[in-house]
Nucleic acid binder design. Sequence first.
DNA 1: GCCCCAGGTGAGCGGGCGCTTAGCGCGCGG
DNA 2: CCGCGCGCTAAGCGCCCGCTCACCTGGGGC
Lengths: 207, 207
Amino acid sequence: MSTAEDTAGGETSAWGEVTPDAARRLLIAAVEAFAERGYHATTTRDIAGRAGMSPAALYIHYKTKEELLHRISRIGHEKALDILRTAARGEGTPAERLAGAVGSFVRWHAGGRTTARVVQYELDSLGPDARAEILALRRQCDAEVRGIIEDGVAAGDFDVLDVKGTTLAVLSLCIDVARWFNVSGPWTPDEVGALYADLVLRMVGAK
Amino acid sequence: MSTAEDTAGGETSAWGEVTPDAARRLLIAAVEAFAERGYHATTTRDIAGRAGMSPAALYIHYKTKEELLHRISRIGHEKALDILRTAARGEGTPAERLAGAVGSFVRWHAGGRTTARVVQYELDSLGPDARAEILALRRQCDAEVRGIIEDGVAAGDFDVLDVKGTTLAVLSLCIDVARWFNVSGPWTPDEVGALYADLVLRMVGAK
DNA sequence: GCCCCAGGTGAGCGGGCGCTTAGCGCGCGG
DNA sequence: CCGCGCGCTAAGCGCCCGCTCACCTGGGGC
């Protein structure tokens, strides 16, 4: 069920689309630094240092520090949307599709906690235009999950009081995994994914 | 069910214990600024300006900017623990106590979103000693919720696969309300509290 | 009426920030 | 074998940060 990109220890394999190599190394360094300290507490000197380059090298590949965050955020959200879309549009009953979506979404947040943390929690550091672009992707994520729940309700498989509110709660539960999950803690990403899939099926009253 | 302190519009009534008046105004200004921009993006000049004072005035009442965050975080966590403890140790069945705890905890996060945001999401900006102190309070919050769930399981009222994991998920769900709740959105704090109480009872398989 | 001092201000220090610029070295076409 | 341009660095600019300090002020005790 898990694929290499979301449980790989290095957590750097998802950035293959970023070229050239120096730009990718800077971006990976930025992800690590932002996740550890937060965007505003991270300096461009720190990012460049982690990538083994001088501070000025950053500005050959990126116009500003904010552009780095924007690129990270967009790629990350596209990956998240891809995960949900694949699960939502797959085969199976609504319950199976919802469990699959939650399971893989949670595994991505837990296994790629470093990336997910930046993607989910540093949104407010973006400027208005970039933030608006990212929020559009988030609304699409919301729509995919709501679609599964609506299917389940329509088929009589789910028992939900408030579809919109429950959708929000399900996504909220998954996203917050990036805040608390600890790689050296008692659970593996797979275990949390399985536990959460079960909890979400209960939340929607799956038969 | 709601009390004045957690749904009051001004959201400034919980800081009565902070004296003198100038110190309280600075602290409230800091809460607002930290919630809006985050700790690292907030300047001491901004905090002092919101309180109607000169930048230097801050240092008469607080040793550093970090001490402000520490005081806010400690008072906020004590309030959160108080809410959970009151609900956990009240009368009623485990289901009633769990619904009450989740309802009031969520109302606090939604109604006092400004405060809750700082309390729940700016923890990493604290130094090691202060963070350790706050983490101890968080473990007590965790213990209160776990206690209710264990009571329900022991009484045969709940059906839970993993008590520790479910406790974490319940708290995670409540805490994340501070991230997404919008005062001008479609729900009131009371409505979210009621919806979440229902969702959590489903998560623990309450009869 | 006078002093005192807690609580406040205005100005500014040292430093680190995001970002720029002048110039270096090296692989490659001619 | 030259020279040119791309990718990078060393140095540093201007700014604003957290924080300090010398000074001011107005209301209470004697």
